[in-house]
Each structure stands twice: as C-alpha cells, then as structure tokens.
Design a protein around this nucleic acid. Structure first.
Lengths: 156, 156
DNA sequence: GGTCTATATGGGATACTATGGGAACAGATG
DNA sequence: CATCTGTTCCCATAGTATCCCATATAGACC
C-alpha cells in the first residue's frame, strides 16, 4: 500500500506521536509492528520506513562481508547506525527519541508526508517553505515525471 | 530483525556489560543465548554477531562454498580464531574478556552500534571521530541512498 | 442536524532494562 | 587437602518506557 498525503499529529509531553493510521497499517503489513526512523540527509526532516527498506540496507552490507567497502556500503551503514527502531504502543503511537526530535526541531507537532514506500516527518512550518520551493522549481523546469515500468508483484 | 541504532552501556568492574535488549533478542532468535565477538580489522572496534553469521564463516571453511573469495576465506579462518563465544548471564550481560577490551581500549563505557545483521562495539569517543568523518565523506560525494533491488524473502 | 464509530490524545499506574554488589562455585595451586 | 582467584548466580534498586484506561475529535452515516 502506497504512502500518500499529509497528516498533522501532535507530540505529547512524553515525546509520543501517533503514526497516521494508513501508514501504520502499511508498516505492519511489512512484518514489524513499528517503524524505523532516521534523520534525512537531504532534508531537514526525519525519514520513516518499514521492515522492507531496512532489510534492503542490511542486505547491501551483508554479502561482501568486508575487506573492501564501496560508497553504497558506507551510506547504508551510516543510515542503519542512525536508525531508531520504534515499536507501536497499543494505541499506534511511537515515542520519538530526543535525538531525533532535536535533529529536526520537532516540538509540539509533527507533519507526516507520504512518499510512496517511505514517509517523512517535518516541522510543519519547515515543510511549508520546502514545499513552496519545490513547487517553484518544478514549475520553472516544467517538470515531467518519467514513469518507470510497473514491476512484478512485490507482495506485501 | 535488523540491528539498528546506537546504544551506550556501562562496563562494570567485573568487565560485564549489558547487551542492548533489541540486539539480545535478535541473537537469541538465532538459536544461541549469547553473542560471538571478535576484533574488527577495518575499524578500531569489536565486531559482534549471532549464530547465523558464525555458521556462515564456518561453512565457508569446511566446504568450498563459493560464499567468499579465497582472500575472504583466509579472513574467515583468522576471524574464527579470534572469536569469543560469550553467553548471556541471567540479566542479559556478557563479560568481555580482557583481550577484547584491550584491543579497542574499552574501559568504562561501550557503544553498541547496529549494522543490520551484526553490530560493533566502540569506545564512544573513537566512534564519534569515525562517524563524523564517515558522514563528511558521504556528504562530499553527494549522498544518495542505496536502493538495490529488494531480495526475495529469506525467511526469518 | 444528530448520532455513531474510529482515530488521536492525555496522564497515572505498572513493568522492564540496565546496573551494582554480595554469595555461592569451580578450577588452579601449593 | 586447604587456600586462593576468578566466575557465575542471585538479589536489590533506580530510572525509564510501556501499558491501560479515560476522553476528545473528526468524519461517516442516518
């Protein structure tokens, strides 16, 4: 199930935040009742994903078990090392560690933005700025989105 | 379950240290209630893994499975010879042998860093330096996340 | 417009993890 | 055979994170 749309939720005193129901459902479908969250390199936001994506990263480190590392390995390891595994509580919330909240400046509200297989978590105001600049850029370029051929069923 | 994130634990006078709960759970799931630890050649750290990885190393030596190249096979034998099998105590701790502590300079604190299927144990300060340079390099290259195709289910 | 259901939210009570230290044990040594 | 040394087990504790229950809200449905 693709992750789409924007969802604005509150962060309580304990640092807990509800994962939007559709996202939550998709994560659970991947096999783990929780989410994996890590700081984004490119944006001032958090990156959220499910079991499948993390497994991909793991696989890229798995096979050639040492000696020579390539760029991808480095990136995979950096990502994994900064990832937090956050299980859902009975109400479908997770508690965001301080480290992650500080990375983006999250305090009272968290804006969840679907990006297909993953999602991002933004400070609402920061997202507005980002989204506006993105739209401008797209218009300026007259952006067209190249569509890749549909893939065989990946299950899940 | 993938091993991710960083966990800072203390080493007591007796040389004992708690294995982070999520790591511990993953190790036990592989069939042995403890961890296998050996010095890393690439980093000034210890390398930790569970039954599965050690079994793979063993297999690559016994049969001529083409899991690893010749070089790596040599490496496997060296690795196994330096590996310590450390069982969990009732509280989920292991006692790090002096040899391993000295290899990395571990004294009071141990930083556990998840890398997917395995983890590393660092002196916190040493890791900070390593991680910082690692991140700089990644940014300098223009970080893109590795998205190798997802693999078919490998079970468990 | 009113009611109903489900998601999102708040907060107190509870359970668990990490940690420290003493006691019981086992092997080594003289 | 007694003693010594280094482990492993057992118990106690602090601090934190999780669970549980109550409530607010939003949207769907009559």
């Amino acid at each position: 199930m693709a992750l789409v749309g924007r969802h604005l939720n509150k962060i309580d005193k304990k640092g807990r935040v509800s994962i939007p129901k559709p996202f939550r459902t998709a994560m659970i479908a991947e096999g783990y009742s929780g989410v994996y969250i890590f700081p984004s390199f490119k944006a001032q936001a958090l990156e959220g994903s499910g079991e499948v994506f993390i497994q991909r990263l793991t696989d890229s480190l798995e096979d050639n078990f040492d000696l020579f590392s390539d760029d991808q390995e480095d990136l995979a390891s950096i990502t994994l090392e900064r990832t937090h595994q956050l299980p859902f509580d009975p109400e479908g919330r997770v508690s965001l560690p301080l480290e992650l909240r500080q990375h983006t400046g999250l305090v009272n509200e968290a804006l969840f933005v679907g990006r297909g297989s993953r999602f991002r978590i933004w400070v609402p105001e920061v997202y507005e700025l980002y989204a506006a600049s993105q739209l401008d850029r797209a218009k300026a370029r007259g952006a067209t989105l190249p569509l890749s051929p549909s893939k065989p069923d990946r299950g899940a």
